[in-house]
């Protein structure tokens, strides 16, 4: 466990103590671990919402808010889009990039009365790619007893909004330092399972990526625990 998690855990327990154990709220901790070789994650977005809320649907076009995350790692548009949405009970954002091998824990609190129809979704970008994300979806919050955890291994998806050119200047992560969001859509047009990156060593001569940036599924572990 790194120091940041320990600090977060300490903060959240202090906060809970300060709240005096509010009986009307249910609180969950979501821990994400980056299990890729060399794909930092953009700041995580976690959303507790009713089951008719979806960040995206497989084989359907990505929203522009998702495109902002998938191409540039910017989750402010998705978070802004949930404001005033009565289906959304709580949101949380990671504090920054999450490096390979590292974990971060977010805390979400929502009224107990909303629990019955509350489901957790979370999404983040693999930043050394054109438009890869990983996500979890539809994890029931009401099914978790106090102290119980639910663990999901998550795969990588291709947002389908930007061609996987791997070209210099097209990837926002540290492997390139290139462009993030671009409104143009020049890819498959819908969200799919990501085909992986090829890299220069893999034979793509104009790729800015090296072989360490390749990945296979799964790419992340999400663990959800009810703590209050």
């Amino acid at each position: 466990m790194n120091i940041r998690i320990a600090t977060l855990a300490l903060c959240s327990s202090l906060l809970l103590t300060a709240c005096g154990g509010d009986d009307d709220m249910a609180t969950f901790e979501l821990t994400v671990t980056n299990i890729t070789s060399a794909q930092p994650f953009s700041p995580l977005t976690a959303i507790a919402a009713a089951d008719d809320f979806q960040i995206f649907r497989l084989a359907e076009p990505a929203s522009e808010a998702l495109e902002q995350i998938a191409e540039g790692g910017d989750n402010s548009f998705l978070l802004a889009s949930t404001e005033g949405d009565e289906r959304v009970f709580a949101t949380a954002s990671g504090m920054g990039a999450l490096m390979p091998g590292m974990s971060e824990t977010l805390t979400l609190s929502l009224p107990v009365e909303d629990l019955d129809n509350a489901y957790l979704s979370a999404v983040t970008m693999l930043v050394n790619t054109n438009d890869a994300i990983t996500a979890v979806h539809d994890i029931s919050l009401s099914s978790l007893a106090m102290g119980e955890s639910h663990r999901v291994m998550a795969r990588a998806y291709d947002a389908g909004t930007e061609a996987n050119s791997e070209a210099q200047g097209s990837i926002p992560g540290p492997a390139d330092g290139g462009e993030g969001f671009n409104a143009e859509r020049d890819d498959t047009g819908s969200v799919r399972v990501h085909p992986g990156v090829i890299s220069m060593a893999g034979g793509k001569a104009d790729s800015v990526l090296s072989e360490v940036h390749r990945f296979d599924n799964p790419v992340a572990v999400f663990s959800l625990t009810r703590i209050e």
Binding site: D52, Q54, F56, L58, H137, D138, I139, L144, H150, V152
Partner: peptide
């Protein structure tokens, strides 16, 4: 530990 559906279903399947 509970299992969850993990399929990102399309809108017509939500119900």
């Amino acid at each position: 530990m509970a299992e969850c559906p993990h399929g990102f279903l399309s809108a017509d399947k939500i119900h």
